[in-house]
């Protein structure tokens, strides 16, 4: 049986209109993506798919995605004027639409982000699934599956035997409960990426320990999203 709703799902959420899937969820996809990038980007290419492809202007999803890229929360009244704030923040963006990506969820967005100050680049694909709930389904070509509602770790590591068990055990020693874990790799003994959702935040010292492991390349930590 599905988990019981909160009374604040009935009287809430507080959000910017007009629609939880077209504004609130869209803001949250962008908020997840800038955490993966590590900063507010200077350049963004936004692709709206399927149902979003034709309706993104009418529903204000274009302003919502830009607002999320600037780090605004889903109830921030600046969402309506996000384009003006993007100019001030040095964020350049372009929109494109793909109408018939039949293998993708009806409300899908792809973000190609670049920050010329750090040189970092990231590609994130997210779905807006209604009620402001999102799912990040791809990061840099690696399939993924996380919602941003919990605390998420993205770990790039060599595909060495025992690495998953080792990381899980380190997290367990931090008293963190792993809710979901999703591992994808480009090929056998090739680069692998782990997406780990945890019920509680991880300690800085645990993160530092994981980061210094010789077979770990990069760790991104995304605390729970608004």
């Amino acid at each position: 049986m599905a988990e019981k709703s909160s009374i604040f799902d009935m009287i809430g959420p507080v959000m910017i209109g007009p629609s939880s899937s077209h504004t609130a969820g869209v803001v949250r996809i962008a908020r997840a993506a800038i955490r993966i990038l590590g900063s507010i980007p200077t350049e963004a290419v936004v692709t709206f798919y399927n149902s979003f492809a034709r309706t993104y202007e009418g529903h204000g999803s274009d302003r919502a995605i830009v607002a999320g890229l600037l780090g605004y929360a889903p109830d921030d009244t600046r969402i309506r004027t996000a384009f003006d704030h993007a100019a001030d923040a040095g964020l350049k963006y372009t929109f494109q639409s793909v109408g018939n990506a039949s293998t993708m969820h009806p409300n899908t967005i792809k973000l190609n982000l670049y920050d010329d100050r750090t040189g970092h680049r990231v590609e994130v694909v997210g779905q807006s699934r209604g009620g402001g709930v999102i799912r990040i389904v791809e990061v840099d070509g690696f399939p993924s599956d996380f919602s941003g509602a919990l605390h998420t770790l993205i770990i790039d590591a060599n595909d060495v035997p025992g690495s998953i068990a080792f990381i899980a055990s380190v997290i367990a020693h931090d008293q963190c409960n792993i809710a979901t874990m999703f591992v994808s790799r480009k090929g056998r003994n090739d680069a692998a990426r782990q997406f780990i959702e945890m019920d509680s935040p991880i300690k800085d010292i645990t993160l530092a320990y994981l980061r210094q492991l010789s077979w770990v390349q990069r760790i991104t930590y995304i605390p729970t999203l608004d």
């Binding site: 959000m15 910017i16 209109g17 309506r80």
Partner: peptide, 21 residues
């Protein structure tokens, strides 16, 4: 109308019905 014009509302129970309560 605030909801339709990208203003702040409470979805109660949904955004589309946010003027009634």
């Amino acid at each position: 109308e605030v909801n339709s014009c990208m203003g702040r509302v409470v979805a109660a129970p949904t955004a589309g019905a946010s003027g009634i309560l």
